[in-house]
């Protein structure tokens, strides 16, 4: 077990050296890579040690080419309303792998400077019928192709792009919350009070980065479009220890969870992927793989939660009057 995990981590490490160009070694089990420059943009450098031909170790600036999409810097203002050409972003969530580790939530919150109680991504406990076994259901913005939230926005502060992404321009949002109401999946959250001070470097607000947030406006999952420009997966996908979240470009027909990269079309076909509440006609861009042949007991996802948090799921687990079990 342990050995296998180690191997996985090592593979992950190698994958990272492979894809990112910049190499670093993981200190332990899945620890963060020493990747210092988080902000986008070309022409970045890092200090590296180089062994010269003469056999001397010198420190030089190494150019990091982490720009995968031009322009690399997240667009400002109206430029952000144009999708990234040729891209069609999708997410695939493997319900069989989710065990409510909640690392995706933490990664997302850290990356987007959210408060601990602000969750762009929520993990629900679902039960499809009284006889069914509950399963964990991560849910963030579905970036619908027919988004009910965008329809109702009176000022065009939330918009749909050609690359599937639905974004919020907090510089324009008037905070009417109609989009929050219109979303059938309750994915949108409101900045009820002053957002926390941001330590994430940013030059000017871009809807793709969503940082810094503004009081009195609506925010939600942005599919980490700014990270895609650097060829990086969204925070949630990279922080999931189970690799349950796959992200990718449908036009490339590939989705990746950081370790494995799979063909999107085959994955959906073979694993009978579905979209949540297809009947609503919102045409989501997030697909789910059914929670069959699960790797974990759903109860293992409860273990780490405080008792008060566990009670929230009692109704799902035991039925309304606690009689079902």
């Amino acid at each position: 077990m342990k050995k296998k995990e180690d191997k996985g981590n090592r593979r992950k490490f190698l994958k990272n050296t492979f894809t990112l160009g910049a190499a670093a070694l993981a200190t332990g089990s899945g620890a963060a890579l020493a990747h210092k420059n988080e902000s986008g943009g070309n022409g970045k450098t890092e200090k590296v040690k180089v062994l010269t031909t003469e056999g001397k170790v010198v420190e030089i600036d190494r150019h990091i080419d982490d720009c995968k999409i031009d322009p690399c810097a997240p667009p400002i203002g109206n430029a952000a309303r144009q999708g990234i050409p040729g891209r069609s972003f999708v997410m695939v969530i493997d319900l069989a792998r989710c065990k409510n580790a909640r690392k995706c939530i933490e990664g997302c919150q850290k990356g987007h400077n959210l408060k601990p109680d602000q969750e762009w991504l929520k993990v629900y406990l679902m039960k499809d019928n009284p006889e069914g076994e509950p399963y964990w259901f991560p849910r963030q913005c579905f970036h619908c192709d027919n988004p009910p939230c965008v329809k109702v926005c009176p000022v065009g502060a939330t918009f749909k792009r050609q690359d599937n992404i639905v974004l919020v321009d907090e510089n324009r949002c008037i905070g009417c919350k109609f989009c929050v109401v219109a979303c059938p999946y309750s994915v949108r959250i409101f900045n009820w009070d002053e957002p926390p001070e941001s330590d994430i470097p940013h030059e000017e607000y871009s809807p793709e980065v969503s940082v810094p947030a503004q009081i009195g406006t609506v925010s939600k999952c942005d599919f980490c479009a700014d990270r895609s420009r650097e060829g990086k997966l969204p925070y949630c996908a990279t922080s999931c220890p189970m690799g349950a979240l796959y992200f990718g470009d449908r036009n490339e027909d590939a989705v990746s969870n950081g370790t494995d990269t799979l063909r999107f079309s085959q994955l959906i076909k073979e694993r009978v992927g579905y979209r949540y509440r297809e009947e609503l006609g919102t045409k989501p861009n997030v697909y789910y793989l059914p929670p069959v042949e699960r790797m974990f007991d759903y109860e293992s996802g409860l273990d780490k939660l405080p008792e008060a948090n566990q009670k929230v799921y009692d109704e799902i687990r035991f039925g309304k009057n606690g009689k079902n079990k």
Binding site: L25, T27, V48, K49, V50, T52, R62
Partner: peptide
């Protein structure tokens, strides 16, 4: 370094 890592690149003609 601070994480206990060493990354040593080799010059192209090394």
């Amino acid at each position: 370094d601070s994480l206990g890592l060493i990354n040593l690149y080799l010059a192209n003609d090394y």
